[in-house]
Design a protein around this nucleic acid. Structure first.
Lengths: 194, 194
DNA sequence: AATTATAGCAAACGAATGTTTGTTAGTTTG
DNA sequence: CAAACTAACAAACATTCGTTTGCTATAATT
């Protein structure tokens, strides 16, 4: 036990913060709310974190860097573009299920980031979207995908995967894997019977 | 000009409020912010509205009742289920483009509604989702749709249409109608080429 | 013309905000 | 054992919050 003491409490604060931010939004969550959830006084939290803004930054950038590094892994594999896109969809769903609160913060509360973090985060997101879009574009060029507008395809996929956060509860009708399969079917082959 | 005076300013407040709520969230928007946008002092707004909460309620319920009445219209038409779903997708996209700020509030800030408005709003939304889901279910039964999980299909469609709010700017690459066509293609026939 | 209603303002209200300070135990390090 | 560090607290900070009050000028109604 070398650094577990400080690190643990800090981690706990970040976890509870993500939950509260998801539930009540960044502005709607007070440091006293958060402290109550952590089990200490608001003032005591400043022994572990610099500011409320820092909490938001830590959550957002952990999420964005997770996405970016996972995208890089998928890009590096030698697989058909269909499979790469499927992997990305599965990644999004899995992260949403495993780390839903943080992902939700990265989806909604990032707008409360202060400069320069705000610009940095936007750039990271744009970088991710560019990489994702490139895979779609190449998949179209390779004849694996329909010649649909790339931005439309990209954002439809990214959004279609977000509702999991609002809807999915473990032990509900569908398992995580069934959920992934259903969403992938929906996005890749469409609703209509042909 | 009988009641235009009061109604106009009240309407202006609601419009500016929707814009600000979308931009900075309900909690992140102060009455002084809003007043500044309207061009009067915060105190003066209370000549037109009862409270900040009332503003939120008015915006949310105007949106929800719009969706519900439009759904009823579409349900009443005699058309294949494919066409009904297409109409609903077009409705969502069009409302998002024409009244994006309010729709955004109805999508995100409704959670700041106070009881009993909160419960009432949730019920209205659930009612809408039930009606939408029924159309998908009947479409599957009629053999028009793939036998996909209905909830997955419903929420994929509802979410896939939300990103328009974040992305679409009039006079961008795609016209509104092209946008609708592309999203419908994506959702009904899927990304994959077969 | 007299009266009433409307719509604005400045000032103030108590409550809540994020954060700082001073202090105090308990723990780790020299 | 002494010194330094950690992590907690209560109290207070200035600021901002939504809202109320008291008042004034203008507009509408009688």
């Amino acid at each position: 036990m070398i650094t577990t003491r400080k690190t643990n409490k800090r981690q706990l604060i970040l976890e509870e913060a993500a939950k509260l931010f998801k539930q009540k939004g960044f502005s709607g969550t007070s440091m006293r709310d958060l402290a109550g959830e952590v089990g200490i006084e608001a003032a005591s939290m400043y022994n572990h974190i610099k500011s409320k803004d820092e909490i938001l930054e830590l959550i957002c950038f952990r999420v964005s860097s997770t996405y970016i590094s996972q995208l890089a892994e998928i890009e590096a594999t030698a697989a058909p573009y269909v499979e790469k896109i499927k992997s990305l969809i599965r990644l999004h769903i899995r992260l949403m299920i495993e780390d839903g609160a943080a992902v939700s913060v990265g989806n909604h509360d990032w707008k409360y980031l202060r400069e320069p973090a705000l610009t940095e985060f936007k750039q990271a997101r744009k970088q991710y979207e560019k990489g994702f879009a490139a895979l779609i574009e190449q998949g179209i060029a390779a004849g694996e995908f329909q010649p649909v507008n790339v931005s439309v395809a990209l954002f439809t996929i990214l959004s279609a995967v977000r509702w999991v956060e609002l809807w999915y509860r473990p032990g509900r009708e569908l398992s995580a894997e069934e959920l992934e399969d259903n969403i992938i079917t929906m996005l890749l082959t469409g609703l209509e019977k042909k």
